[in-house]
Amino acid sequence: MLSIKNLHALAGEKQVLNGLDLEVGAGEVHAIMGPNGSGKSTLAQVLAGREGYTVTGGTVTYKGKNLLELSPEDRAREGVFLAFQYPVEIPGVNNVYLLKAGLNAIRKHRGESEMDAFEFLTLIREKMKLMQMDESFLNRGVNEGFSGGEKKRNEILQMSVLEPSLALLDETDSGLDIDALRVVAAGVNSLRSPERAIVLVTHYQRLLDYIEPDHVHVLSGGRIIKSGDKSLALELEKRGYDWVKQEAAA
């Protein structure tokens, strides 16, 4: 589904990604771990098409298309979803507008008809229940005045409404208490399916207790320096990152 080859990228002026390779297949859950500054968030931003990040080399192929040529909205419409590390507060644009406009733009792109108000509300109510969110959230400004946990839950709510093919979660576990982490993890797990790929970018192993990955990668210096299964995450938790770096340097 996603094939990244020899990706080089700048964040602003700074070279952050230095030849990153990653293959993600449908139905798989990948965890990308690494110390601060290793390039985890840059990877997520580059894949979502954020301005200020410049690809200087390599290719990213998504469902057979050159992902890097697509605008952020076209990536979203093709099924790429990024759950933000720091979801943006947008007073005056309400959550229900964003969900409906996003969903209908994606449906239109797929050649489907727009959802009517009743269908839409039924869908939203069901998803909100899963995320244990109160319906009053719908008419509030996007993330406006939300706590850290509420913002992350809102990201997963959006994801479950938009039903992406490729879900990228950027440090979704950061700032969550254990109850919120369980709710968020349940939301993500409910989206696991043979047609969908999930990439978790995380600093800590904790999230992986709740969302079990098929593959774990260590990102360091802008490249993947080691890959393994979920046991690699446990080992990193115990031993830190230095031994992997030394192994890679050797």
């Binding site: 909205e73 979203a76 979803f81 943006v88 947008i90 406009a101 996003g102 733009a105 996007v142 938009l162």
Partner: peptide, 18 residues
């Protein structure tokens, strides 16, 4: 706000709608 614009576009809204 460029960040808010990107956020809305990353949910599928066209640039002009965002």
């Amino acid at each position: 706000d460029a960040t808010a614009l990107f956020y809305l576009r990353s949910r599928g809204l066209s640039e002009s709608d965002a």
